[in-house]
Design a protein around this nucleic acid. Sequence first.
RNA 1: GGUCCCUUCGUCUAACGGUUAGGACACAAGAUUUUCAUUCUUGAAAUAGGGGUUCGAUUCCCCUAGGGACUACCA
Length: 475
Amino acid sequence: HGGSFLLRIEDTDQARYVEGAENYIIESLRWCGLEFDEGPEQGGPHGPYRQSERKDQYQAYAGQLISSGHAYYAFDTSDELDKARKDAESEGRSFSYDAGTRLSMKNSLSLSEDQTQQLLDSNASYVVRFKMPELSKLVEDEDMIRGKVSFNTTDLDDKVLFKKDGMPTYHLANVVDDHLMEITHVIRGEEWLPSMPLHVLLYRALGWSKPLFAHLPLILKPQGKGKLSKRDGDKMGFPVFPLEWIDPVSGEISPGYREEGYFPEAFVNMLAFLGWNPGTEQEIFSMDELIRAFSFDRVNKSGARFDPEKARWFNHQYLIGKSDEELAGLFEPELIEKGVKPPAIENLVRIVSLVKERVSFVSEMWDQSFFFFTAPDSYDPKVAKKRWKGEVPEFMSQLAVSFDSYGGGWDASELKAKVSDLIQEKEQNFGGVMNALRLVLVGGSFGPDLFTIVEILGQKEVVTRINKAIDVLGK
RNA sequence: GGUCCCUUCGUCUAACGGUUAGGACACAAGAUUUUCAUUCUUGAAAUAGGGGUUCGAUUCCCCUAGGGACUACCA
């Protein structure tokens, strides 16, 4: 839409302050490629960007709401509120601080003006509550995703707008800041839908025009009931956080998509398709394509179950879309970590091209290609039993001699022709020999084209491996 | 419990009154192949149930059921 993207930190709950959380949010957005134009670090015309630094404004607006009759002081202690809740519960009802109960509570509506003033003067702690209109009134608003959504004011309660610690609640801070910071679109999770009428009423009470609302569907657990939680990821082995997070207090580590080896493009693409689709059969979208294709009318209303398998698939798609050179660059550090000296870059590029189709993550390339870098230290016993028998060991030693004395061009097709001739000459079974040679070179029954492996390993190494296998597996 | 939102293959979803209900993931079978994968082909798989409205409902309305969210001086 060509607008500005502001990052605002909603840190009005001082009790829940977490060291490093703000930085984590910023780093996560950047990793995803979501660049914001204004925020706490770089500043901008709508600052400050932390609500804790905008504290002064909220009190003024709370005061304005009180003078205009849209809000009131409440002096109830938390003990008194607990008691009211308990009393209601014992009668089988649930307590709601609303038009029906507010006059029996301790607030500037039930108290006289003098009493209220006295409490205020004596520095009694108080909160400011929104005075929900008591007449049954329909609050309707247009949600960009859900269309018309309606609530009745008689079902709504008097929410706290301003806390006794001098900080606003989300409801007040969000409305005030969105107005002051000229926010045009409020796009948030569906869990906020029940708060929409309160927010609409607040905009009206303050005499402001409201932004557009869009309530997005939630991400649900892969199995079972409810929305996706960190526990589901731990249980099923997938991350729920974009970046690894280490809790500064408990030290608990939550894995991240970045650390698991997901490409940010794949992560964003996967997420974009949870609850939205372009209406075409295209599934792989770059950030630019996503920006161009996205529209609210193609966002679904119902929650979307997260599918870890599909997430893997997205990563696979991006992996095979990358150049062999780029992947080789990403794979090289893994080799060093495994204690392997990386081969010449052109060889590594070639190896990568052979295995990229087979994996979803760079980290999986090692399992598919280790035999290019290090001789197998064991032979799959099942394969050995099946393939290393009869005349095979004898033929293998002849093959070793033949490879050793080979003086022609060392490339896959020539070698294949040469070995085929030898097989025919000695009346061997082609498939049987191939499988045995594969066992010798890679240690099992897997891997890309065998003669390509032979070519890449080189004359000396191939001979060494054959002789080693004869030693280990016997003649 | 109350309020609000939602409901198409196992999962993500397409079809904005007329389609043999389409695609993708996962699954199964077959083909290819020197192995394992890849790839290709094929298959199985859905309109929650019941009422309306209509010539005609996946599509519009109502009820039921199921799911989800909220119900804090948290966001």
